[in-house]
């Protein structure tokens, strides 16, 4: 990856004097920083204290000391629940599919865009491709549901007119299609946006490499294979490792919006499970146990990803 190095400026000197005089001198800096330290404490760190709920029979309205401690009871319940393993399977399936598709397709698209010679066209296609990224998942889900609908949906209309199918497919009602629909929706929405970083990497490749290849009589395809792709390899590896760290934290937004009761066995992710069976039923302790499982696994994945990253680049991303 082309490292963006900030020029070393003649910066301020580290203070030599003792703490208090400097503290007074920097009172405005403190006044500008402290509110946000407090903010981060409340909204990022305090929820961790809420993890105690998973070990209590939490009743809203009672104080912390009045709650009854139950140890690992809710975790035992969780690990005996079939729904939990179902949700874990769905989460892993959709995140791995999303990772692979969301990683390969933007690379292909970036390479294709880079090969467009008409700059006006390239800019137009790029602008169009960013559009879905900026609309909300609510809008995207509405559009996708419409496109896949059985009455007058574009996809069914197209397949029917090409005589590939003779009956409209009920895309949104078929459980085994759900993972694919979510992955495809993700690709539709984010591919353009995700190419930005690859295009930046490609533009960092020296034009002299292409010139030399042309002199040697390399075809355009050979140039892509031997110059462009190796040129962005580092970027690709870094992004891939980083996405391993976020593997399990896919949330529930897409699944909530695209799913329905007919496909629940395939659409329920861990977060959706916590929403439906924890929050929705007032079982706060049980839901917290699900959240803890999710958080702990994602932190472990993050450390694994960082470990691999360190081995390869001798640098840390955490």
């Amino acid at each position: 990856m082309k490292a963006i190095t900030t020029k070393v400026q003649p910066g301020p000197k580290k203070p030599k004097s003792s703490f208090w005089p400097t503290f007074l001198q920097q009172k405005y800096l403190y006044m500008m920083a402290i509110p946000f330290v407090l903010w981060a404490f409340v909204f990022s760190y305090l929820p961790l204290w809420g993890w105690t709920m998973a070990f209590q029979k939490y009743k809203p309205g009672k104080s912390f000391f009045e709650q009854k401690w139950v140890g690992f009871q809710y975790f035992r319940e969780l690990f005996q629940d079939e729904q939990f393993f179902n949700a874990l399977r769905n989460t892993l399936a959709m995140s791995i599919m999303g990772l692979l598709a969301g990683f390969i397709i933007p690379i292909i698209f970036a390479v294709l865009l880079n090969e467009l010679r008409l700059q006006v066209l390239k800019r137009f296609v790029q602008t169009v491709s960013y559009l879905p990224h900026f609309v909300s998942w609510v809008v995207a889900a509405g559009i996708i549901t419409k496109m896949l609908s059985t009455d007058n949906g574009a996809v069914n209309d197209l397949l029917l007119s090409l005589h590939i199918i003779s009956e409209p497919i009920q895309f949104m009602a078929k459980g085994h299609l759900f993972w694919g629909i979510v992955t495809a929706s993700d690709v539709w929405k984010e591919t353009g946006w995700n190419t930005i970083i690859y295009l930046a990497a490609i533009s960092g490749i020296g034009p002299e490499l292409y010139e030399a290849a042309k002199v040697d009589g390399a075809s355009r395809l050979q140039q892509v294979r031997n110059i462009t792709l190796p040129g962005i390899r580092t970027t690709v590896v870094i992004l891939l490792i980083m996405s391993i760290g976020h593997l399990i934290s896919i949330g529930f937004e897409k699944q909530f919006l695209l799913g329905n009761n007919l496909v629940r066995d395939y659409s329920q992710t861990l977060d959706l499970y916590a929403l439906n069976y924890g929050l929705g039923m007032g079982r706060f302790s049980f839901g917290t146990a699900i959240n803890i499982f999710n958080s702990v696994v994602s932190v472990i994945l993050l450390f694994v990803a960082n470990g691999i990253f360190k081995k390869i680049t001798k640098e840390s991303i955490i």
Binding site: K14, F36, Y45, P47, L48
Partner: peptide, 27 residues
């Protein structure tokens, strides 16, 4: 500001928020 005394602390405290998450229900 490199000369800011609390810089290291504030920076780390803030960076960690990217990785810690209590989850839906505690929030």
């Amino acid at each position: 500001r490199v000369d800011f005394q609390a810089r290291k602390f504030v920076s780390t405290f803030l960076a960690l928020t990217m990785y810690v998450s209590g989850g839906l229900i505690p929030f």
